[in-house]
Write a protein that binds this DNA or RNA. Structure first.
Lengths: 131, 131
DNA sequence: CGGAATCCAGCCCGATACTG
DNA sequence: CAGTATCGGGCTGGATTCCG
């Protein structure tokens, strides 16, 4: 990681996104882990039980659902409540911090809806040029 | 993929995030590919040459920089201009569509800055409980 | 129902070397 | 300077099986 100090002195005031200086990296890595965002958005509609989350995101595996929920819980984004019923049921819901990321996430989701068509067109055009 | 039709009829009006119905998935997969967001944010400050991007994101490899730029170009997010100088120089800049995603991205980035400390605390607390 | 544990394929991505 | 090509390790994540 000595490349960092090199880069700092080397350049004309470029913003540098390096791992330790940059909270963005830390958070974005989670957003980008393929399932976190979808689960957060789903939980944004209200608390869900394990099985309900699985149905809301059909192609997630049980393994990744469990793991992603643990990670989100670890980061303080969601809370996990076990109801000692028979059979047991577990409810997940957003914490205040988890709820606070919904707005940025929805902004991104809205952007995706709005531009998805344009992106598909751009991809097709690009791919055609290359053959 | 027949699990989809199952899920649709099975439940009480849950929003279902499945791949083909869901532009969000398509876009979020790119956001999450570890480098795209950082490059978009960097290009949001202005056009950059290849080498400048490499310095702005120090721990990206040449390979991933090239590949990520290609993908972003393919999606119509950035444009690539070659100047026939000696040695050659190549400038990357955001397209209008690429620029339009900056606001949501920055909202997320700002959220990350604001909550990074809280997340670290939550992680530490969670990890201590488990030992 | 909600998980945990194990096994294993695939790809992501970094390191390295070569080009115009 | 701005790439391309190739190799290979590691981690992601799916499938399956078992538990309370």
């Amino acid at each position: 990681m000595s490349a960092v100090s090199q880069a700092n002195v080397a350049d004309e005031r470029l913003k540098v996104f390096n791992t330790e200086l940059c909270p963005v990296r830390d958070v974005l890595d989670r957003i980008g882990d393929k399932w976190s965002t979808l689960l957060l958005l789903t939980l944004g509609e209200g608390p869900h039980r394990f099985g309900a989350l699985k149905r809301a995101v059909p192609d997630i595996s049980q393994r990744m659902l469990t793991q992603t929920l643990r990670d989100l819980q670890r980061d303080g984004m969601i809370s996990r409540t076990v109801f000692p019923t028979q059979p047991p049921s577990v409810e997940y819901r957003l914490t205040p911090m988890g709820a606070s990321i919904l707005a940025p996430l929805r902004a991104l989701s809205d952007w995706a809806d709005a531009h998805h068509a344009a992106i598909k067109v751009a991809r097709a055009a690009f791919d055609e040029d290359k053959g």
